[in-house]
């Protein structure tokens, strides 16, 4: 294998190994389908406890998964910051409207869950492309 081919193969292999972040984002996005409706539609102390446990499990699980990774793509910090920032903004808006305006609306809860998942899904798709 020539030097150029070897270098290109190494770069591709390293990019593929750093594709864990796409899986992280897919799991985070999928969790919105449960967490957002839970936050908007389920009320009471039991709901609060269940929601807290669910969020804690999600955050702890994802954090542990990320901490075990031994390869970090260039610019990961900035990209992660932007994605989490976008998700937080949409999530906050969803809670605001869902708890004050569209109270107990299942339709709104479904739309909000999709909206919260959207930046994470887009991020996951872009990461998958970058890793290949």
């Amino acid at each position: 294998m020539g030097a150029l081919d070897r270098a290109a193969a190494m770069e591709r292999a390293a990019r593929a190994r750093s594709g864990w972040y796409a899986r992280y984002l897919w799991v985070f996005a999928a969790a919105q389908a449960a967490l957002v409706p839970m936050a908007l539609l389920w009320h009471g102390p039991v709901a609060a406890l269940a929601f807290t446990l669910a969020v804690t499990t999600l955050v702890a699980g994802l954090s542990l998964y990320a901490a075990r990774q031994r390869i970090v793509r260039r610019g990961f910090g900035a990209r992660h910051g932007v994605l989490i920032g976008l998700w937080a903004a949409v999530y906050s808006a969803s809670l605001l409207f869902g708890l004050l305006v569209f109270v107990d609306s299942r339709t709104f809860a479904a739309v909000a869950a999709s909206a919260c998942a959207l930046p994470l899904v887009v991020g996951a798709v872009l990461e998958r492309r970058r890793a290949s």
Binding site: A3, R6, A7, A8, R15, R17, R70, R73, R74
Partner: peptide, 18 residues
């Protein structure tokens, strides 16, 4: 050495084992 540098070029950092 070229392979090592090529493997590190698309990443911020990588573990020694990787």
């Amino acid at each position: 050495r070229l392979s090592v540098v090529a493997a590190l070029s698309p990443v911020d950092r990588a573990g020694f084992g990787v």
